[in-house]
Amino acid sequence: MTPKHEIDDDSYFVSKSQKKRDMDALQDLGKKLTELGSGSLKKVPMSDSLREALAEMARITSNGARARQLQYIGRLMRNEEVEPIHRALEAIAGKSNVEIAKMHRLERLRERFLEDESMLTEIGNLYPAADLHRMRQLRRNAIKERAENKPPKAYRELFQILREFEEVGARTEHPHHNSEDDGHHGRHHGGPADE
């Protein structure tokens, strides 16, 4: 039979190491908050004292002072409701991941279009308001820029147009309803980039 004092010692060490893990987790959470930009921080629910400490951290440049401030933020974290903070950070990270995935998808679409002009049909289906004549012209210019090692002006503009139409599509449940207005929006790109 196990002596009673051994059980108590075990539970003491478990609770002590658990407290250490909890403190480290709070410190890590505080560190994540210090890495956010001011716009993202506004979306995170927290006490005024923590918000002020994070604002102060952004102004500190000395490494020693930053380390002390981070410890202070870690102590403040003990009084915070961490669940809403976790949820806000997940939402910010999720939005960021969605944006990155969207950019990669548009970049792949642009590359496929440069390799194969028949992709214009797919672009027309995806973005009914797209000015296909303008897209074809930009494709020719982008290929010429690449061949002549010129700055990728048309190449970038292609991406901008695709991104604009993607955003219009995301804002309107049925993009066809606004296709006429959006068509004008697409046509304003016809300008000095035709070199």
Rank of each mutant, 00 (worst) to 15 (best):
R105C: 14
L29Q: 02
V44R: 01
G190W: 14
G191M: 09
E195D: 15
L126D: 15
E99D: 08
R68G: 03
A129E: 04
H86D: 15
E83F: 11
P175Q: 04
I92H: 06
I92P: 12
V82M: 09
E83L: 14
P45G: 02
A67Q: 14
N178H: 13
P192D: 12
H133D: 15
A130Y: 01
Y12P: 13
E145W: 14
E107S: 15
R134L: 10
H188Y: 10
V14N: 05
H5T: 02
R112A: 15
P45C: 08
R66D: 10
E145R: 07
E115R: 07
F13E: 00
M119R: 03
L50K: 03
H189C: 00
R66Q: 14
E107K: 13
T172S: 02
E173H: 03
R171H: 06
L126T: 02
M1R: 00
L76A: 11
L76V: 03
D22N: 06
A67G: 00
Q27Y: 14
T61Y: 02
G39Q: 11
S47P: 11
L76K: 10
D9E: 04
K95M: 09
I143C: 06
T121M: 12
R163Y: 04
E6L: 13
P45D: 12
A25L: 08
H174S: 11
D8W: 00
E167I: 05
R112T: 12
M119P: 12
V44I: 08
G191P: 08
A91N: 07
Y127T: 03
I73S: 03
R146S: 05
K43Y: 05
K95V: 14
G124Y: 07
H5P: 15
G39I: 01
M119I: 04
S11Y: 09
H188P: 12
V82I: 06
E173P: 05
E6K: 08
A142S: 06
A91L: 14
K4N: 04
I143N: 05
D194Q: 04
L26Q: 00
P128T: 00
E111Y: 09
E173K: 14
S40K: 00
N79F: 07
A130L: 08
Q18V: 07
R75S: 10
R136F: 09
S17C: 07
R105S: 15
M119V: 09
A58G: 03
R112N: 15
G64K: 15
I7L: 13
P128I: 04
E180T: 05
R134E: 06
H177K: 13
G37T: 02
K32A: 06
L158P: 08
E6S: 04
M46Y: 05
N125M: 10
R59N: 09
G169F: 08
E148Q: 09
S38P: 15
E90F: 11
R139M: 04
M46Q: 13
K4P: 12
G74N: 12
F165G: 01
K43M: 09
M119W: 05
L54E: 06
E180G: 12
M77F: 08
R51M: 07
R66N: 01
A88C: 04
K144W: 13
S17R: 14
A129L: 01
M119Q: 12
